[in-house]
């Protein structure tokens, strides 16, 4: 028999299907970048003429700079705070055995399962009830409520595979608790911490539903995009969209290079 077996056919189908879905995931982003170079005020395809004037406008615009700065400040603060909270939270989640852990594991993950828009509105009520005026500071708080559990989840995966005997061994060999933390625990868990930080930064950078209700008078890029999409479209929408998109891509690229450098060191050790 010469025809390919059933197994081979399914394998081929799975590969093709996966490829198609990945293309499906990226098509809209390509569309946004394409539109950002279109000369027309309103998008039309095939694009009759290309231009970079929207980018020039964006770079010279003060309000765009302000949007970027607000988004960046929120994301940076969220990353730092959530990584610290989640590092400890993940140790409690996956490393230590303690009474109440199973309940903690479930409760701590609840915000992930929660509709973000409703969470944002609930925060709005909360801030007004305790008399806090909403601004980008309150948005940091709101982002943290949703992002910290996600980072805990990501870091936990790494923490689960961490052998507690490593800490005990270092302690037994004379290390202080601080030396155990800085020389054993943190370096071994660093891949999990780095991926947690990447997720924290980018999820905050791109978040819309929480920002919408908690930034008050300040505005982030996703909020601005939504406002302009729903009413008052300007050609700056695809331009700013592409800009945030490339910022995220750059961030990932840098993270990837750092990761390559770390694993190159590991490989150098391995090859000896």
């Amino acid at each position: 028999m010469n025809r390919p077996s059933w197994k081979k056919l399914t394998e081929r189908f799975i590969i093709l299907w996966t490829g198609a879905v990945i293309v499906f995931l990226y098509v809209p982003m390509v569309a946004v970048v394409l539109a950002s170079f279109s000369k027309q005020r309103y998008f039309k395809f095939p694009v009759p003429a290309f231009t970079d004037k929207w980018y020039q406008k964006a770079f010279s615009s003060l309000s765009v700079r302000e949007l970027l700065w607000t988004s960046l400040s929120i994301a940076a603060l969220v990353t730092i705070i959530s990584v610290v909270l989640a590092f400890l939270g993940a140790l409690a989640f996956a490393r230590y055995d303690w009474k109440g852990r199973k309940l903690y594991q479930r409760l701590i993950l609840l915000p992930i399962f929660f509709p973000q828009a409703v969470l944002g509105l609930a925060m709005l009520l909360w801030f007004s009830a305790i008399g806090v005026t909403t601004s980008w500071h309150t948005a940091v708080f709101a982002h943290l409520v949703w992002i910290t559990p996600i980072v805990i989840l990501i870091m936990s995966i790494q923490v689960y595979s961490f052998d507690p005997a490593l800490e005990e061994a270092a302690y037994d060999l004379g290390a202080t608790r601080w030396q155990v933390l800085t020389q054993i625990t943190l370096p071994i868990l660093s891949p999990g911490i780095i991926s947690g930080a990447i997720f924290a930064f980018l999820l905050s950078w791109g978040n819309f539903p929480l920002s919408l209700f908690t930034t008050g008078a300040d505005q982030t890029i996703p909020e601005w995009l939504y406002a302009k999409m729903v009413s008052g479209y300007t050609p700056m929408v695809p331009t700013l969209g592409s800009l945030t998109l490339s910022a995220a891509a750059m961030f990932l690229l840098v993270a990837y290079i750092i990761w390559l450098a770390i694993s190159a060191r590991r490989r150098r050790l391995d090859s000896l």
């Binding site: 879905v21 990945i22 995931l25 990226y26 098509v27 809209p28 982003m29 390509v30 569309a31 946004v32 394409l34 539109a35 998008f43 395809f45 990447i198 997720f199 980018l202 999820l203 950078w205 791109g206 978040n207 819309f208 890029i221 996703p222 995009l225 939504y226 999409m229 929408v237 695809p238 969209g241 945030t244 998109l245 995220a248 990932l252």
Partner: peptide, 21 residues
């Protein structure tokens, strides 16, 4: 990685892409 990266791009931008399509 290819499937995870889009999660990290703002939902609004990606949905706007579909509007354009």
């Amino acid at each position: 990685a290819l499937i995870a990266v889009p999660i990290l791009i703002s939902e609004n931008i990606r949905l706007f892409g579909w509007v354009l399509i």
